[in-house]
Amino acid sequence: MAEIPSVAEKYGSKVGEVPVGHGDYVAGGAGGMPFLSFENPSKRRPMIAGEVRDSLVGYPELAAGMFSGREKDPADWAMMWKEIGADMIFLRLTGTDPSVGTTTAEDAVRIVKEIDERTRLPIMVHGCGVQEIDHEILPRICSEVRDTRLIVSCVEEEDYKRLSAAAMAGGHHVLAFSNLDINLAKQMNILLSDFGVEKDNIFMDPLMAPLGMGLDYSYSVNERIRLSALRGDRMLQVPMVCHTGEAWDVADATSDEPGLGDPAHRVAWWEAITAICAMMSGADLLVMRGPSAADMVRVYAEELAGGS
C-alpha cells in the first residue's frame, strides 16, 4: 500500500483546561484542531450547555413547546436539560429587567442555588443586558453562590471591571465577549489579564453568527483564533464558547413558508449545523437552545471525539 506522508501538525501549545461547577466537569485542553486524533491527544468533546431562562418573554414559542411545560420553572427546566444529556446549564436572567419581568436579586440567587442543588451541573449565568441591573445582580450571585464555580457571562471591552472583580471575589470564571474579530478577542483577554483575572479563569466568546446570518465570518474567526492559540499565542489559549441559539432568530429556520418542510425539524438542523460549525472551528463549550439539536450534536461530538 502507498505510504501517506505524515500530515499531523506539531503545534507545540495547547488550550488551557478549566474546571467548572463542582470540579467534575472540565472544558478546553485541545492540543490540535478539533477531533483529529492524529494531532490532538485530547479526547474531550465540547461541553453542551442548555439554555434556561427566568422569564419566557421574548423566548420562541416553538422552543418553549419542546420542554413539556417544564420551562415554566427554571430549576425544573434545568433538570430536563440534565435528563436530555446537557453538561451545563446556561441561565439567562432576562426577567431581572423590570421592563420584562419581576425577578429580584434574591430571586436570582435562589434560582441559581436551586439549579445547582437539583442538577449539580456547572452553571453559566447571563444577565439581562441592562448594565445597572447586571452590575447589581450578578455580583450578588457571585458572592452568595460559593460552592459551585460559575461562569459569569459576559464582560465586554467597555464594561468588564465590575463583573470580573465580582467573579474573582467569588472564585468564579468570566466569559469575555468580543465582536467577530480575532484582534478584539485577544484584546479582551489581555485586558482581563491586566486586570488580574488569571488565564485559567477566562472563557472567550468571539460571537458565533448563526447559519445563514454570517456563519462564514465566525467560522473563519474561530479557526484563526484556535490556530493562533495552538501556534503559541498565549492570549488566545482559553476555552472558546459559542452560542448557537441565535439560529432560532433566522427567518429561514422557523418560517412557515410552504416547500421548506417542517419548521421544528428545520430549526433543529439550523441550530445543529451552527453548533457543528462552531465545534469544528474550535468551540469548547456550546450554548444551545433546542433539545433535539443539542441531542444530535452531543451524539455526533461523542462519536467524533472517539470516546464518550
Binding site: 445563514g212 416547500g259 439550523w270
Partner: peptide, 29 residues
C-alpha cells in the same frame, strides 16, 4: 466543512436541504 466535493444521498427532505444548502453557500463565500 472539511474537504468534500460531492455527497450522494438516498433521499433528502426540504427541512434538511435548506440548512445544508445555506451552509454550503456560507462556507464557499
Amino acid at each position: 466543512l472539511k474537504y468534500g466535493s460531492l455527497v450522494v444521498f438516498d433521499g433528502l427532505e426540504p427541512y434538511e436541504a435548506l440548512p445544508l444548502f445555506t451552509l454550503r453557500q456560507n462556507i464557499y463565500t
